[in-house]
């Protein structure tokens, strides 16, 4: 009886520890993450514009590396920086929200510079949105 008890406690401890680790599973490390798709901002936007459902199938939740010219830089009250990249459409672009869990080499981006970022594609509203972006 006593013998079983020892094993039982041991198993319980393992369960507790692994449960703790699963619960505290860290967010994906974007800097080290493998790029699933790599393309220009214009091309990504056009694909969403032409067929949203098809583009969702390809890009949603994927790590997308995107190259484009910065149209607008904005920072919100929490210090989170967002970049809008140019597309063929004059009004709408690709919005890249920089990752707040990563230490960025720089956040002083300028209008008109060409840049390559990678982030997680979350879909399209009027602009295509990428979150947790880092410069690559």
């Amino acid at each position: 009886m006593k013998k079983y008890f020892k094993y039982l406690i041991f198993l319980f401890a393992i369960g507790l520890v692994s449960g703790f680790f699963i619960y505290n599973k860290p967010h994906q490390n974007i800097e080290k993450a493998k790029v699933d798709q790599s393309l220009t901002a214009s091309k990504l936007f056009t694909e969403f514009e032409v067929d949203e459902n098809a583009a969702n199938q390809i890009y949603l939740d994927k790590i997308v590396e995107i190259t484009g010219v910065v149209r607008e830089v904005s920072a919100d009250e929490n210090g989170m920086t967002s970049l809008t990249l140019n597309t063929d459409n004059e009004m709408f672009g690709v919005i890249c929200q920089l990752d707040n869990l990563t230490k960025h080499k720089r956040t002083d981006f300028k209008k008109g510079e060409e840049i390559t970022l990678k982030g997680i594609c979350t879909g399209v509203l009027m602009d295509v949105v990428l979150v947790r972006c880092v410069e690559s």
Partner: peptide, 24 residues
């Protein structure tokens, strides 16, 4: 942080749209 919204001050119409995957 990436909700899109339009408000028309003449008619009072408003629209919001968010992407579920953009919730952090």
């Amino acid at each position: 942080q990436k909700a899109t919204s339009v408000l028309d001050s003449q008619t009072g119409k408003m629209e919001f749209a968010i992407l579920i995957k953009a919730f952090q």
